[in-house]
């Protein structure tokens, strides 16, 4: 393999592009669910809601303390072994479940830190004018915490996109699985993986652009 087989690479682009939507779908749905779960966990932790707080601590500890691949195997292969009805969990569902749980554990901690970081006197000011705890969270604390947490959350999202490549182990052919199979057929590993790498890269670059845009918007209130 002295020369890069450009013709092969170009031919591979439309083939691999067919699998990109699934990769984005896995990460996109995973991210939305993980964010939702992480916000719940963070609020439970901040308000120290009894029982739930302890459960959340154990949950976070487990899903941060074990590899994502192990979790995926547990959901996909382990659960059906215990309850045969759970064979209905297909690879896509198991992947989304795994990504959601795994990343929500990480994100909960950074959201919690961001919430705690919001100036306590603003909380008192909001309560002093008669806001409920819910209004306080929605209108004052979470918008400010979002700004602080955004860069970290974006990093997790990018991590999650790359982590979708584990889905092929559960029989889900996404971008990485398709690339591995094509490479096995052609033995042009370098060419195949460089095409896939560039696709991931472009997606992540676009996300970084989005992040810059959001950060500028959210920072509007803090420029002197």
């Amino acid at each position: 393999m002295d020369v890069l087989n450009v013709e092969y690479m170009l031919g591979l682009v439309p083939v691999l592009l067919r699998y990109l939507p699934l990769t984005l779908q896995l990460a996109g749905i995973g991210m939305v669910l993980a964010l939702f779960l992480a916000c719940l966990f963070a609020v439970v932790r901040v308000l120290r809601i009894p029982v739930l707080n302890q459960l959340t601590i154990v949950f976070i500890s487990f899903f941060r303390g074990t590899p994502l691949l192990v979790q995926l195997f547990l959901f996909y292969y382990g659960l059906p072994q215990l309850f045969s009805a759970l064979t209905v969990i297909d690879g896509v569902t198991a992947t989304v479940m795994g990504l959601t749980m795994h990343f929500s554990a990480y994100m909960a901690e950074s959201i919690r830190a961001a919430i705690v970081g919001v100036d306590r006197s603003q909380t008192e000011a909001a309560l002093s004018i008669g806001m409920t705890n819910g209004q306080l969270m929605r209108r004052i604390v979470l918008p400010q915490a979002t700004r602080v947490a955004l860069p970290t959350l974006m990093n997790y999202f990018i991590d999650m996109i790359k982590a979708t490549s584990l889905a092929f182990t559960l029989g889900v052919t996404e971008l990485m699985g398709a690339t591995q199979k094509e490479a096995a057929g052609s033995f042009l590993y370098f060419e195949a993986f460089i095409v896939a790498a560039i696709m991931y890269w472009i997606v992540v670059e676009l996300l970084s652009k989005l992040q810059n845009y959001l950060e500028t918007r959210l920072n509007k209130a803090y420029n002197r």
Partner: peptide, 21 residues
């Protein structure tokens, strides 16, 4: 909540909502 609505508070360190004009 009703009592808080009847009594407004001005804080030593202003405590304005930083995300609002």
């Amino acid at each position: 909540l009703a009592m808080r609505r009847q009594t407004a508070f001005v804080f030593q360190n202003y405590a304005l909502f930083a995300n609002k004009t």
